[in-house]
Design a binder for these strands. Structure first.
Length: 279
DNA sequence: CTTTAAACCTGGTCGC
DNA sequence: TGCGACCAGGTTTAAA
């Protein structure tokens, strides 16, 4: 479950090692991921120099001059550097660099993706419809409120829509709602202006905190340098059903299911809208 | 149009 | 010990 902070942590870890490296050879051991790796992927990537490692939402972008390699880690994807070619059962792609190291893509659940585009990556179909980056000024409460207006889906579900805002996943959606004091079941279009303001701020704060902790969310997340990335942060509500709210309000964290996903909230700190006079 | 559910996939856990 | 049921997650596609 790499969300924005984890992907950004991977980017920061890999950028110094990959920038100015030339990809000498590409080894594809398994082509079928979320989408099949294109048949001409190896040809288009081999011999190219990595000019920059960028991120958009949860997508990593290896800028290769005329081409850009687009990588998504899905929920179990890991990028690592190795002295050995890919050999692990779920190591699907290896790229031999000109420093004799391999960039290895491992993804047991194969929800990830790897492709290449010659166009500006922002115009690629995977990125074109993404909402604003949550840590930029483009994502602000007036934008947020306008996009939520009239929506009848729960705010938790809306938060996870990458077309609304890019990079927020299941964990940080719950954490942001908790920090903002908004019940996850509140219909998106019924958030007050102040709710939108607090929630916008909470999303930014929660993501920045996780980023500072080095990316926190994956049970099976390994940072680019091989160290576990999740040990520093503790979530206030996520995965804490039945445990006391860490605001020490005396209530226990409640788990509910929304759109097939688990959500967690504190019934005291995040009162349901029916109880606030706004429902 | 909006919203929801199913699909993809593997590995870990839980109950029997 | 084994086995089935279920859960985790991001995103797209299909269905309602």
């Amino acid at each position: 479950m790499p969300e924005l902070p984890e992907v950004e942590t991977v980017r920061r870890g890999l950028a110094p090692a990959l920038t100015n490296r030339v990809i000498r050879e590409v080894m594809i051991r398994r082509r079928r991921l979320r989408e099949a790796i294109p048949a001409d992927f190896s040809r288009r990537v081999t011999g190219k120099k990595v000019q920059a490692v960028e991120r958009r939402g949860k997508y990593l972008l290896l800028r290769l001059g005329t081409e850009t390699c687009i990588i998504h880690l899905g929920m179990s994807g890991v990028l690592s550097l190795s002295a050995l070619p890919p050999h692990h059962k779920h190591a699907h792609v290896g790229m031999l660099l000109d420093d004799e190291r391999y960039l290895i893509y491992t993804d047991p659940r194969r929800f990830g993706l790897m492709t290449v585009t010659a166009r500006p990556p922002a115009a690629h179909r995977l990125l074109a419809a993404l909402g604003p980056e949550p840590l930029t000024a483009a994502f602000n409460h007036s934008y947020f409120r306008r996009r939520l207006a009239g929506k009848k889906m729960p705010i938790k579900t809306a938060l996870m829509d990458s077309h609304l805002v890019a990079g927020v996943g299941n964990i940080y959606a719950s954490e942001s709602l908790h920090q903002a004091g908004v019940h996850p079941g509140t219909l998106a279009g019924r958030l007050s202006a102040d709710d939108c303001r607090r929630l916008t701020a909470a999303i930014k704060t929660v993501l920045r905190q996780a980023l500072r902790a080095g990316g926190s969310s994956m049970r099976d997340f390994i940072a680019a340098d091989g160290s576990p990335g999740y040990f520093q942060t503790r979530w206030l509500v996520y995965d804490r059903a039945g445990q006391p709210c860490l605001n020490q309000c005396g209530a226990q964290v409640v788990q509910l299911r929304q759109s097939g996903r688990s959500s967690y909230y504190c019934p005291n700190c995040q009162p349901s809208p029916e109880m606030t006079g706004r429902g």
